[in-house]
Design a binder for these strands. Sequence first.
RNA 1: GCCGGUGUAGCUCAGUUGGCCAGAGCAGCUGAUUUGUAAUCAGCUGGUCGGGGGUUCGAAUCCCUCCACCGGCUCCA
Length: 646
Amino acid sequence: MIKITLPDQSVREYASGITGMDIAQSISPRLAKEVLSITVNGDVWDLSRPINHDASIKLHKWDDAEGKHAFWHSSAHLMAEALQELYPGVKFGIGPAIENGFYYDVDLGDGKTISDADFITIENKMQELASRKLDYKRTEVAKNQALEFFARKKEEYKVELINDLEDGTISFYEQGNFTDLCRGPHLPNTEFIKASKILSVAGAYWRGDEKRKQLTRVYGITFPKKSMLDEYIVLLEEAKKRDHRRLGKEMELFTFSQRVGQGLPLWLPKGAQLRERLENFLKRVQRGYGYEPVITPHIGQKELYVTSGHYAKYGADSFQPIHTPAEGEEFLLKPMNCPHHCEIYRFKPRSYKDLPLRFAEFGTVYRYEQSGELHGLTRVRGFTQDDAHIFCRPDQLKEEFIKVIDIVLYIFKTLEFNEFTAQISLRDPNNKEKYIGSDENWEKAERAIIEASEEKGLKTTVELGEAAFYGPKLDFMVRDAIGRKWQLGTIQVDYNLPERFDLEYIGNDDKRHRPVMIHRAPFGSMERFVAVLIEHTGGKFPLWLTPEQAVVLPISEKYNDFAKKVSNILNNSDIRTAIDDRNEKIGRKIRDNELKRIPYLLIVGEKEFETNTISVRKQGDGDKGSMSIEDFAAMITKEIDELIKY
RNA sequence: GCCGGUGUAGCUCAGUUGGCCAGAGCAGCUGAUUUGUAAUCAGCUGGUCGGGGGUUCGAAUCCCUCCACCGGCUCCA
């Protein structure tokens, strides 16, 4: 007999060789119907794999990441089998589960492609196979057997994968007519998969290497219930409706021009105002934290970036130098603000008493992104960072770090990003030579970040080896209103630039010391942040940010003068108010302005004119009755004050 | 940059296998109507069909090429 410990620490005894499915069955038949995989002593296993020793286990259903993972991984195999039937001769690369679904990289053979029109055929084939209730069977094989098997099938990609594996740990999974090299785990059988959808196809280099063959990557998603697929499709449609590229155009916030150049956003008046409001908001917050504004030009001498080290690393893949007509000088469009800020630090000798210095600038930078990489406002070639560089003494690092976290948290709270996580990126302890700076400084910096995050109670993940070569960092990820993740702000510690620019301060020991730099951008970039804000809010911005807060709707032309008076009073109270004096019926005006996401519609007609009032309609909430203009102004002012306090 | 897809009016889209002056709705303009809580009616304007080249008696439609956009890959100071 063996002892099986469940997550609640209760212990059950079973005969050796019991499987996860047997255990589920013994707990409840209902559980047995829903369970998808099992964790055994920390490893995720198939439910059909025998357990031969004492173990702690956890059974996974759809709600667990592990359960979904097994489900989608098995679905990738199912799709592969479908492709094998539909495209004879297809060769397989890799087919993992991903955050939302799975993909399989396949080589269809020369000249063959899969297009949108083929998706339905693949989906139908998958469901046909699934309904046959094919078991996923695990076998363990020796390396030479595995090689022989796939060599015979002319699966050169699999052969390559196996060659890179250690002997003795190789497992195959087989369902129906499809056998794959796979670590698992998998579902018991294909019948769990009740709904399949092929989402897209794309090219993907074999093993991520652009010098190697490009395979066809087929993306799909599956569900244990048909209704869940329907819900997912609704979510995709909702995401489409919120797409910032679409709303940016519709709400007249920004545009792109082929003539200006790809990846170079043009901010339209309403978008520029929105952005300016965000900037002013952050400027005020930063003023309170002791930041000092600086302004630097958009270009700098090439030598500046040679000094910073960026030229060596990125020069060839950047916009190429600008040459002066006479002197033969070379300038680069600035790809970041830090070198300029370092020169500001160097303006005069600094004392330990001067530190920390916090130089802030909404600095516009230009980076040559590959053309296929550009995407709306989230990936552009010219963008403005809400940048600042803090120059401090090593002993001030943690305190400064905490203050930056405070700013980030305040921004998230004000803009209602209520769900977020932070990723701490540390250096790879086995690869220390990849990084610049002393061990002592690294340890100090990493400890500072970890402790600062703990003190602020951040929900963090730690990634080893993800640090920049010049220092560890903390990145913030927010979850938007429909559950998607976006990376926003970043805080990075840097020992490299102070070194390269030979930055110093005089300590209280009268000796020269090296300051530490913190790079930080709570929004990340204005472009990206506005994009995320649009997608998060679906264009229904917080009242204090929205371009037009209220529109006065006169019932007929007779009340245009009164409407004018109302809007003047409100605008004088800093409430951004427009008038819709088109020759339209009131129903039409309401409809159009609701669709424009105007927070408050103010209707004025005979009744309101007589009593000097307005009839208020709140966006999405209908008629709120009438009130005096002054009461409305006070109400709005109060509402904004509650949203944003600075 | 690479693979695949898309490109028709400001926006959303029709335009069958190449064939009269390229269409619709919305937006815009003009006029009528003077309106009470999510679309008043009528008329009009607007497109070198992404750019260039080619095939053809004839091209939005077929071919080549360039550009931009979309989905990914690679990259991201």
